[in-house]
Amino acid sequence: MNKADIKPNGMAAEMSNGQNPILAIFYCQNIPGGDEGSRQELESHYGESIRLFPIPCGGRLEPLHLLKALETFADAAFVIACPEGACRYFEGNRRAKKRVERTQAIIESIGLEKERLGILLGSREKPKTLSRWVKELSEQTSRLGVSKGRRL
């Protein structure tokens, strides 16, 4: 994993209490930097502000898991899948996108920002490492703040 992606900052420690945004990331193990070692490194860096869930295929993830994450512990929940067309399970990620859009509509209908939930597809030309994704998403999440829907 690329060390440069992790910038030392004091935020990580502060986020570990229940009032700071918690990010749940379900990611396809096939993305760059999706190995077990990277995961452990990221978790120790970010502490309790992120939870990482490696999955065999991002496209296979049920939106229910994202919803459940929002309900039980997370302020934002994302799934990171392979680039469109590159899914090992053929079209898995295209359909997943539609399902996640529907789930976004559900949280919007109860008054939550739809940005708290999403699916992200990698790019074939500019593949992003897991740590890069985590960095971007945690910045995004801290802007959204704590979710009113989360169990505290």
Binding site: P63, L64, L67, I106, I107, S109, I110, L112, G149
Partner: peptide, 11 residues
């Protein structure tokens, strides 16, 4: 899904 959304909405 519905139950989860309703629980969140209630909270």
């Amino acid at each position: 899904m519905l139950a989860s959304a309703l629980r969140m909405a209630a909270r």
